[in-house]
Design a protein around this nucleic acid. Structure first.
Length: 446
RNA sequence: GGCCCUAUCGUCUAUCGGUUAGGACGAAAGCUUUUCAAGCUUUAAAGCCGGGUUCGACUCCCGGUAGGGUCACCA
């Protein structure tokens, strides 16, 4: 096994700005980042925008913003290939002079010349850190095109020159690049560049094992941000897709990932993106977050009227956040969904109570009336310290008379809903006075 | 189709020749003193197939099958 050498590690993430930051690309960036940081190295960002037609500034901005949000910080300024024409030209001309490349007459629209690489037609073998030895016969590659003309390099040339110029020691990229490697090695050898280590990581697949694309739902980092995932959760999930620490630990901060990361433990087979697990993981990270960090995020997702209500009554707002919202959401956008479904409004203002629903399915109006009176009575002297103290006060009575018999009317009177958190929690949130008031409103209906 | 890569529960994975094949998500059931959510407990659930090598293969080798990648003057 090759052991990491003494030379400092330099990795890079080299996206082309032809689309928003895809979760698969984000994972590639993450593995490069993790590997570099793990070895005290440098992680560079290179924008591969040699294709002027397809490269867009807005995509570059989305990629930069996505990386920043995820906490995958690159070292130094991003390298833009569109700004390095001079460098590529120098290499290209040297290659033509040495005979490693030549101008060919043919050109797609037959209006000019194209630069082809003079293929030595040899067998190329390279060692992949994840997959072991991989060999190719380069004959079938032919004299492939490396530049549109003397001024315009294409992907393979630009990538190899930049990797060489910036001293990249480890190229960690998607499995889809395996077949590009022999071409790039050929170019490396032609320009006298040192061969870096390669590690081709497995692809991320959709649940139907096809390529993860828009028709499967969210695919870009910015979409996950919008849905309300935490960056740490996405990073954690992505890291564990195709890699694992060899222990049972699953919840990691990016610092912990850096410490535990080992490129040789990266999986060979493709992994299916499982959004259920991501949700679970997001919840775990959400729960671990300090209160003061979560509060603004939740508030931001609340509809205007509820936010105003929460500000108007800080005590209730606080309790709803702690006891209700954080108790049931996995992603932040659920805050909005739950609010829109009316799950929170009854904490701030008395709900509409339907007479026929107050009585439990097995109960009678007469008994229910008596129960409500008794509940109000007990609650009057009960401690509202916590949901538990309220429960403790009511338990003996509910136990004696039948839980459903007592607790259903109680809960319904407070919430006006078929489903809701338990009545003790609601009582705790709205307070003693309002609890008793709502119980009386309900009993008066009977 | 050529070339290349891959193959353990539905999904993410542990195992690096000897285990009752472990964990997590999801699912199911029960408990948590009505419901919903959460939580806890329990259960079901896997070595693609066929040959070797070996005292012994999920693990190593070969073949098949399946899936994926790639075959641009995109990256």
């Amino acid at each position: 096994m090759r052991k990491s050498q003494v030379a400092p590690v330099i990795t890079r993430f080299a996206p082309s700005p032809t689309g928003n930051l895809h979760v698969g690309s984000a994972r590639t960036a993450l593995f490069n980042f993790l590997f570099a940081k793990k070895h005290g190295g440098t992680f560079l960002l290179r924008i591969e925008d040699t294709d002027k037609e397809r490269s867009k500034k807005e995509f570059e901005e989305d990629i930069l913003a996505g990386l920043l949000w995820l906490g995958i910080a690159h070292d130094g300024e991003p390298v833009r290939q569109s700004e390095r024409a001079e460098i590529y030209r120098t290499y290209l001309h040297k290659m033509i002079e040495s005979g490693a490349a030549y101008e060919a007459e043919e050109n797609q629209d037959k209006t000019g010349k194209v630069i082809r690489f003079k293929n030595p037609n040899i067998a190329v073998m390279f060692n992949d850190l994840i997959r072991g030895d991989i060999s190719f016969d380069t004959i079938e590659l032919g004299d492939f095109v490396i530049a549109k003309d003397r001024e315009t390099p294409l992907y393979h040339l630009a990538a190899v020159v930049d990797d060489h110029e910036t001293g990249i020691t480890h190229i960690i990229r998607g499995e889809d690049h395996i077949s590009n490697t022999p071409r790039q090695i050929l170019i490396q050898e032609a320009i006298g560049a040192k061969r870096p280590f390669y590690a081709h990581i497995p692809l991320i697949l959709a649940p139907d094992r096809s390529k993860l694309s828009k028709r499967h739902g969210a695919v870009s980092v910015s979409e996950y941000k919008k849905i309300g995932y935490l960056p740490d959760a996405l990073v954690n999930f992505l890291a564990l897709l195709g890699w694992n620490p060899g222990t049972d630990k699953e919840i990691f901060s990016i610092e912990e990932l850096t410490a535990a990361f080992d490129i040789e433990k990266v999986q060979k087979g493709a992994a299916v993106f499982n959004e259920e697990k991501l949700k679970w993981m997001n919840r775990e990270h959400l729960r671990a977050l300090p209160h003061e960090e979560i509060a603004p995020m939740v508030l931001e997702r609340l509809p205007e009227d509820l936010r105003a209500a929460a500000y108007a009554n800080l005590d209730i707002g606080q309790k709803v956040l702690d006891r209700v919202i954080l108790e049931r959401i996995h992603v932040l956008s659920e805050v909005t969904a739950l609010a829109d479904a009316g799950e929170f409004s009854f904490y701030f203002s008395a709900p509409h109570v339907a007479r026929e629903k107050i009585v439990w399915k097995k109960g009678t109006p007469e008994k229910t009336l008596a129960h409500l009176d008794k509940i109000a009575n007990i609650l009057h002297t009960a401690s509202f310290e916590s949901p538990d103290t309220i429960k403790a006060a009511l338990s003996p009575y509910a136990e004696k008379e039948g839980r459903g018999e007592v607790l259903w009317p109680y809960r319904y009177a407070l919430s006006g809903r078929d489903t809701s958190p338990d009545p003790f929690t609601i009582s705790y949130v709205i307070g003693k006075q309002e609890t008793i008031r709502r119980i009386q409103t309900a009993r008066d209906l009977l």
